[in-house]
Computed example of a mutant assay.
Amino acid sequence: MKHKFIAKRYWKDQQTAMGKSDEMAKTFDDVINLSLGDPDLITDDIIIDGAFADAKAGHTKYTDFRGDSELRTEICRFYQEEYGMEVRDEEVFVCASASLGMYLSLEAIVDDGDEVILQAPFFTPYPQQVELARGIPVELATYEDEDFQINIERLESLITERTKALVINSPSNPTGNCLNMETMEQLAEIAVKHDLLVISDDIYTAFNYQNPFVPFASLPGMRERTIILNSFSKNFTMTGWRVGNIIAPDYIIKTIQQVNENVVFTTPSISQRAAIHALRHRHEIQPAMVSEYRRRMFYAAERVNGIRGLSVLYPPKGSFYLFVNIKETGLSSAAAAEKILQDAHVLTLPGPAFGACGEGYVRIACTVGVDLLCEAFDRIEKVQW
């Protein structure tokens, strides 16, 4: 809003589609909210009970500035056990969410006017996060008819002398797609050729329905030029705990620590203890959760593809989002999302919220059970396009 006491850079409304969704969800009393990636499941009792026992035992103070040493050890052990990837303690930083981790990483590496290329469709905060770090976001479009893979020629056409980094996200929010090995190997070659950093937003690593997750940083030569962002929000249904981690070369981690000391000082100690229990008990906690989301995704994709005017890539590859093609309806993304809300009382997000190449799509988050998904698609099926 425009006001003399508001910084002029915020005079233009920059509210995101996600930010508006909370208001939209109150439009009708019976809205089925498929707009946000906040799971209906709650954090497993193993994590909650362990964290609260630790709190009662005294873990209520500041932790080490890079994070609880036990948690850093568990993160290193996780990467070794799951991916055979050696991570040193000094390469790990625990942050109050991966969203904050993205800002901290950008603030640490971006000089004024540096360009950061964003794999699009992208997580909606990316562009503003780049701008907060005084950089320039550059959209790298990917398309459904290319399996949402990054086109290397298109990428190279966007690289300039000011390009500092490339942000990738696989499995993807919002498309649910995954970068294949061929694409990642080509990206690695481009990173070396143009001396780029790659920020790999690895938020949905547990949700791969076709092929096992492979960290981009594990590719030859990529450890020294990759910043990994991870989070416990989705992999362990811990959105409200606000805890994530960054893995990067130690000199970047030192800079991130300096920035963070002026932002939140340290990540909440109780949330860090919860993260320790999550990693230690992941084999007990994750299988049933991932199986449930897989069931929802495959059900939702089948229903979408059975509704006139709508379609989605099938079978689903990852995350718990469907990027639904609505082009056959003849409506814009915003109009289609509004019609679905008004006529079916189902809340989705219009595709352009995730970048210009998202026009022609709406995003659905499969964060409710199959029974509620069934009700949502029964309603959408009756919409007259």
Rank of each mutant, 00 (worst) to 15 (best):
D371S: 15
A353H: 05
D343P: 01
M297P: 04
G318T: 00
A334K: 14
F354L: 05
V304L: 10
L331G: 08
G358F: 04
V324H: 11
E375D: 15
T367H: 14
A300V: 02
G306C: 07
S311G: 15
A301F: 09
H345F: 04
V290W: 08
M297H: 01
P316R: 03
A344I: 03
P315C: 06
L310H: 05
F320P: 05
V324G: 11
G309R: 08
P316G: 02
G355C: 03
L322A: 07
G330Q: 11
V324T: 13
S319T: 02
A344G: 11
H345E: 05
E375H: 12
L322C: 03
V362Q: 05
S332Y: 08
A365H: 11
G309P: 14
D371N: 14
T329Q: 08
A336L: 06
E375F: 01
P352Y: 06
V324C: 09
H345S: 05
A353C: 12
E359R: 12
L331K: 14
E375G: 02
R308T: 14
G309C: 10
T329W: 13
I326L: 06
D371Y: 12
G351R: 07
P350F: 03
P352H: 07
S311N: 13
E375N: 12
M297W: 00
Y321E: 11
P315S: 04
I307Q: 06
A335T: 13
V370M: 12
V368Q: 12
L373T: 02
L347T: 06
G318M: 00
A365K: 00
M297I: 01
F323G: 01
S333M: 13
P315R: 04
A300W: 05
R363D: 13
E302T: 14
I340C: 05
C366P: 01
I340A: 03
R308F: 10
L373D: 03
L322V: 01
V304E: 11
L331F: 12
L313N: 14
E292C: 12
V312H: 10
E328Q: 15
S332K: 14
A356H: 11
F354R: 05
E328F: 11
A335C: 10
A301I: 03
V368H: 08
S319P: 00
R303H: 02
G369W: 09
Y293S: 02
